[in-house]
Amino acid sequence: MNKNEALTKTETYVRQKLEGEGSGHDWWHIHRVRNTALKLAEKEQADLFIVELAALLHDIADHKFHEGDEKIGPATARKWLEHLDVREPVIKHVCDIIGDVSFKGAEVETPMKTVEGKVVQDADRLDALGAIGIARAFAYGGYKERELYNPEVSPEPHHSFEEYKSSIGPTLNHFYEKLFLLKDRMNTDTGRRLAEKRHHFMKEYVNRFLAEWKGND
């Protein structure tokens, strides 16, 4: 199977599986991440085929929806790519990216080994920032039946992936526990530039949210 056919089949597979999902991890998240990753890949001279496959499959079985199982994503991607007869070195590379791409806690390092992994991780993190990032945060919080905000519950600097996965804090805490940290964890110059703008917008939003909460608007 040639590369274009593999990508077309993968897009169809992912879209059918994730379309209409309501937590912010839907097909359109994948679509945005794929497009951003390809733009970054061109600037970073990364392998476009590996980047696109990894971006399309990076949330095919997210641990958040599979009882915290961090191995199910790479395993599901591997099964699909083997079905397409993709070469083993490509499968391994894509699965390694999927296994490492996610944020795993404020005190947990998640370095990417390859330029392809770096651009996919940046693209995924950029979609967690800015106006869309805010919308996705509250969509996920609603999906998990979490409070918008509770001033009696402080954000936690999670020291392990297990702590992060088990967090049940209000959605606004997520900005301090993850989203505000992403700007300084970008891998590429373009990613850092885009993250800076989106980070600033989110900071303004949270300041406004807290002002309205306190009746100081």
Rank of each mutant, 00 (worst) to 15 (best):
N187D: 02
T110S: 06
N4D: 15
K92G: 02
H174Y: 13
K17Q: 13
E147D: 12
P157L: 05
G215A: 03
T76Y: 06
A6W: 01
A37M: 08
V101M: 07
I134L: 14
E196Y: 04
K3Q: 15
P170G: 08
K203D: 05
G20P: 11
N4R: 13
Y164N: 04
T36D: 02
K92T: 14
E152V: 00
A6Y: 00
I72F: 06
Y205E: 12
C95T: 14
R198H: 12
V33T: 15
E109W: 06
R34M: 06
R208A: 12
A37E: 07
H93Q: 14
D124L: 04
L38I: 11
T114W: 03
E204Y: 02
D100T: 03
A55I: 08
L181M: 08
V14K: 12
G142E: 11
G130Q: 08
E145F: 03
A55R: 09
F209R: 11
L210D: 05
S167A: 14
A123P: 05
E42M: 07
H29W: 03
V108R: 08
L7M: 07
D217G: 15
I98R: 10
K64E: 02
S102A: 09
G73Y: 03
P151M: 09
K17L: 09
I134G: 01
K3L: 05
R192M: 02
I98W: 11
P74S: 10
E204W: 03
E145Q: 14
L179C: 02
K17E: 02
E42K: 14
D217R: 11
R198P: 00
S167C: 14
I134V: 14
F49E: 11
A123E: 06
A211K: 15
T190H: 12
G24M: 03
L172P: 01
R146Q: 14
L56K: 03
E82L: 12
N150Y: 09
Q16F: 03
A211D: 13
P157K: 13
E109P: 00
E21W: 11
F175C: 04
K9Q: 13
D122Y: 08
K43T: 06
R32H: 13
D124T: 04
Y140P: 01
H200D: 13
G105S: 05
L57E: 08
G105R: 08
R125L: 00
E44Q: 15
A75S: 13
E116K: 08
T12F: 10
A6S: 13
S23Q: 09
K39W: 02
V33K: 09
G99S: 06
E5Y: 07
Y205S: 09
K104M: 12
K43W: 01
L182I: 05
A75F: 06
I97N: 07
K104E: 08
K183N: 10
R193V: 01
K104D: 01
E11Q: 15
G191K: 11
A128I: 00
I168L: 09
D100M: 12
E44F: 04
M186G: 04
F209T: 10
E5S: 13
D127P: 07
H29E: 04
G142T: 08
E82R: 15
A37H: 10
A77P: 06
E21I: 02
V115S: 06
L38N: 07
D96P: 02
D62R: 04
